[in-house]
Simulated assay, not measured.
Amino acid sequence: MSNQLQICQLSFSSEFAFANSIRWPHIGYFEFFIAKNTSKIFLKNKEIGLLVDLLKLINSKVRSSNKNILKKETLLLSFNLFLYELAGTYYRSSWYDNVKHTGNEKIVIHFFRLVELHCRKEHSVKFYANILNVTAGHLTKTVKQVTEITAKQCIENAIILEAKILLQNNDLTILYISEELKFANTSFFSTFFKKHTYLSPSEYRLRLNSN
């Protein structure tokens, strides 16, 4: 075996990738991760160097001191950067031209497109199932089978990401954001947000501003 051989490995589930995206990703990102027939590709030296450097960056963030209050944020940013670069590498290799999605994968891809368009206003699985002409139960089962998370979790993840984006704008009140995201009141919104982030909207905004 060559002394120049290097093996770098990063393991994660699709559930982790979807739940820890820094924003609701473009559909191409999702298509890459739900495809079951992802093939091997040949990398150019420049691409190898970039991906290895990003893996080293992730490793350094994982091993960094827990006293670093921004450890989680910088780790997630590094993780997302790696995923986007990896997906981009596959697309540049013309991998996408040969992809043949299964029927279930096509349903999920369409579902993701709909969530991206409507998640601020529509929170129910039934709304998306009706557009796709399937039952809510079938959609939930299909999304779970393809992505390892339920349709409801996908919708909630998208809502949380939208909320985080809106909370970055200090000119928007919590009341306005809760109404924009179609919550009955700020109490329901705060409970929902804290359930997913362990912070209230106000605490999350304060943390952003303190950084």
Rank of each mutant, 00 (worst) to 15 (best):
T147R: 08
E148H: 15
I160Q: 07
A158E: 01
K141C: 02
I149C: 10
I155H: 03
Q168E: 14
K152W: 02
V143H: 03
T142E: 06
K164V: 08
I165T: 14
K141Q: 12
Q153H: 11
C154G: 04
I165V: 14
Q153N: 11
L167Y: 02
A151R: 00
H138L: 15
N157E: 12
I149N: 02
K141N: 11
K144D: 02
L166P: 00
I159N: 08
L161N: 10
K144H: 09
A158S: 12
L139F: 02
T142G: 07
I149K: 07
L139D: 04
L166K: 13
A158D: 04
K164W: 07
K141T: 07
E148L: 14
L166I: 09
E156K: 10
V143R: 00
T140A: 11
Q168Y: 11
A158Q: 03
L166D: 13
Q168R: 14
H138G: 09
A163Q: 06
K152S: 13
I165D: 14
T150E: 06
A158P: 02
I160R: 06
K152Q: 15
L139V: 06
K144W: 00
K144T: 09
T147W: 00
A163W: 06
V146S: 05
I155Y: 07
N157S: 11
T150K: 03
T142P: 02
V146D: 06
N157C: 08
A163Y: 05
E148D: 15
T140K: 11
H138F: 13
K144P: 00
C154F: 12
V146T: 10
A151I: 00
A151M: 01
Q145V: 02
V143T: 08
C154N: 09
Q145N: 13
I165E: 15
V146G: 07
E148G: 10
I155P: 04
K164P: 00
A158Y: 01
Q153K: 13
H138N: 15
E148A: 14
A151P: 05
I149P: 01
L166S: 12
I149R: 07
Q145Y: 12
E162K: 13
E148K: 15
Q145H: 13
N157Y: 11
I165P: 01
T147F: 06
A158K: 05
L167P: 02
V146K: 05
V146R: 02
E148F: 12
V143C: 03
T142C: 10
T142N: 05
E162M: 12
I149W: 04
L166R: 13
I149V: 14
V143Q: 02
A151N: 01
L161H: 08
N157D: 11
I159W: 09
Q153D: 11
K164T: 08
Q168C: 11
E156T: 05
T142L: 04
Q153G: 02
N157K: 06
K141I: 04
A158N: 03
Q168G: 15
V143L: 04
K141S: 10
K144Q: 10
I155K: 02
E148M: 13
L167D: 07
K152D: 10
Q145I: 03
V146M: 08
A163S: 13
K141E: 10
H138C: 12
I160D: 00
Q145R: 14
I159E: 09
E156M: 08
E148Y: 12
I159S: 07
L167T: 04
Q153A: 13
K152A: 10
T142F: 01
E162F: 11
L167R: 05
H138P: 00
V143A: 08
C154S: 12
L167W: 03
